[in-house]
Amino acid sequence: MNIFIRLLKSIDRKFIFIITFFAVVIPMFYPLYLPIIPEDSVRSIFKKIDAIPEGSKILMSFDYDPASKPECHPMAIANLRHAFKKNLKIVIIQLWPFGGAMATEAIDELKKEFKEIYNRDIIYGDDYCILGYKVGGAILIQQSGKDFNGTFMEDIDGKKASEISLTKDVKTIKDFELVLSYSAGDPGIKQWVMIVDAQYKVPVAGGVTAVTAPEITPYLNSGQLLGLMAGLRGAADYETLVNKKYPPFKKYVNSGTSGMDPQNIVHLMIIIFIIIANIIYWHDKKMGLVR
C-alpha cells in the first residue's frame, strides 16, 4: 500500500497532461455513441423556434470569440439549421468583436448543407443579414428597444440597415419573435435578459459556455429566460432534437454530439483523479503526515 501511495505521489503533472490528451484523443477514434437525452431547458428553445410562424424574424446575437468557439459555435449552428429549415428570417448582431466572423463561418457551413440536402440557397439580405460590431454592450441593447436600425446602423459590408430588405421594416426589438444569444460572458445573455425580457417582453433564450451556466440558472428558474443551452452538452441536446426532426442533417458535422464521447471519458478520468488524490490524503492523514 505504502509503495503504491508513494508511486502515486511521485506522479509528475506532465504525466497527467499526457493522460488528459489521450483521454480526449482515443474516444474520437473509438466512439461509444451513447444516446443523448435532451434536457427540458433545451427542449423549450426547440419548441419555441418550432412554433414561430414561417417568415417571422428572429434576432441572434453572437457574443463569443474563438476562445469559446468549441462550446458556443455548435449551438449556434444547430439553432441556425433549425431556423433556416423553418424559413425564419435571421438578423445577426454582435456584441463581441469576433461575433461577426463567427456568424459568417457558421452560415458558410450551412449554405453548403442546405444546397446539398434541399438544393436551397441561403441568401444574404433575404434569409439573413449580419450587422456590424458596435461598442456599448448593454447600452446597445437598451437603444435597440427604441430604434433598432439606428442602433446597429450598418451591416458588416457597410450597407445601411435601413436599406437591407430584411431589416428595413424593423422598428424596434419588439419586431422580433425571439432573441437568441450565444454568450461567453459580458456583454451577453445576462444583459439580453435584464433588458429585452424585462422591458420589451420579447422572449430571450440562448446558449452559454458551461462555466457561466450556473450563474444564469436563476433567470431560467424565474422564467425570465425561455431556455438555455449550457456548454457542449447543450449543443449536443439541440443537435439531437434537430436531427430527430430533420434526419438529413445527421451526416454533417455535429460537433456537440461527437464531442460527448471524449467528454464522457475525461469526466470519468477527472473523477478518478480526485478519488486517487483523496485516497492519498486520507492515507497521509492516517499516518499523521498532514493535519
Binding site: 458551461a210 464531442g259 471524449p262 475525461v266 477527472i270
Partner: peptide, 16 residues
C-alpha cells in the same frame, strides 16, 4: 463540474 466540462470542450475543439 460545469467548468471542467467547459475546459475539456475547448481541448476537444483543438484536438478535432
Amino acid at each position: 463540474g460545469a467548468t471542467v466540462m467547459a475546459r475539456i470542450s475547448l481541448l476537444i475543439g483543438r484536438v478535432r
